[in-house]
């Protein structure tokens, strides 16, 4: 007698089906799964090793020298003790600031052109392609380029030349991330604005750009982080300076070049300053990255 109105098949015919649902720890499929999971974990661990090692290294070497003095004093002469790299810290802020002042507006405007005004055209495809090429150009080549463009024409090494070189490095990162961010804004949002009688410019300025801002800022932060640590292009452009910066048209010290100069000297004090400089650079990049994360989260 069935208690339900549905026909129930015989128990015996269900047994085979149910057996197939049970776990089979020794089947080839399960074993393969286990092995692959282990391999994935090992690879992930290997990938994290250099990251942890770098952090540990700069903390260990540079941590002991961490003090306010670093930011208020000039680098000491070779045999002296103490000192800091206040000029190089300010120099890094200045060159990165000049680079950002050029690259952020240019990059975002170029991205707006590519995704909102020229999307799908041949011109846009070419610019997109060239941007990708530019992002692959080694930074030392960018330095040589900035040297001939700015240093030779201005008649000397300068913060401006360094900032220009950094701008060239930042530009493709900003253009690419901003173009991608703009492309993520749903087409419906543009249609809604146009349907209400917004002009093209109003649509971009009031709807598309605000919606894309958080990921654009992430790209900007990435570019700033990348630029803060660049050394090669600055050696040809900003050079170095043992004194406080007096303006933007003179050679200027930067943290990355200071690390490069001091790490290879035989003097212990200089080496320690290089290590502390590395630590500050790593901290700056980390703060920029965390900042970009926070921006995305807030959205």
């Amino acid at each position: 007698m069935n208690s339900t109105p549905f026909p129930t098949p015989e128990d015996s015919s269900n047994q085979g089906l149910i057996n197939r649902l049970k776990r089979q720890p020794s089947s080839p499929r399960t074993l393969f799964n286990t092995v692959m999971t282990v391999i994935v974990f090992v690879c992930a661990a290997i990938a994290i090793v250099p990251l942890v090692a770098v952090l540990w290294y700069v903390l260990e070497k540079g941590g002991s020298r961490l003090s306010l003095e670093l930011f208020t004093q000039l680098p000491p002469p070779p045999n002296a003790l103490g000192g800091g790299f206040g000029n190089a810290f300010i120099g890094t802020l200045m060159t990165v600031g000049i680079g950002s002042a050029i690259a952020i507006p240019c990059g975002i405007l170029a991205a707006i052109f590519l995704s909102e005004f020229a999307a799908g055209t041949r011109l846009a495809n070419w610019i997109g392609f060239l941007t990708n090429v530019l992002s692959g150009v080694p930074s030392i080549v960018v330095g040589v380029f900035a040297y001939s463009m700015v240093v030779l024409t201005m008649g000397g090494f300068s913060a401006i030349a360094g900032g220009f070189a950094l701008a060239v490095l930042m530009l493709p990162i900003i253009v690419r991330t901003a173009t991608e961010s703009l492309a993520l804004v749903p087409q419906e949002a543009r249609q809604a604005a146009v349907g209400l009688g917004a002009t093209r410019f109003q649509t971009v300025a009031r709807v598309v750009l605000p919606a894309a801002l958080p990921p654009i800022l992430t790209g900007v932060m990435l570019a700033v982080a990348r630029a803060s640590g660049e050394t090669a292009p600055l050696i040809f452009t900003a050079l170095f300076n043992n004194f406080w910066p007096k303006g933007v048209s003179e050679p200027i010290a930067t943290l990355s070049v200071l690390v490069y100069n001091f790490a290879t000297t035989p003097y212990k004090n200089q080496q320690e300053l290089a290590a502390a400089g590395s630590l500050i650079l790593v901290l700056m990049v980390t703060i920029a990255s965390i900042g970009s994360r926070l921006i995305v989260k807030r959205k």
Partner: peptide, 8 residues
């Protein structure tokens, strides 16, 4: 429009 599309 067909799909409600308020601005964010």
């Amino acid at each position: 429009f067909q799909k409600p599309n308020p601005f964010p």
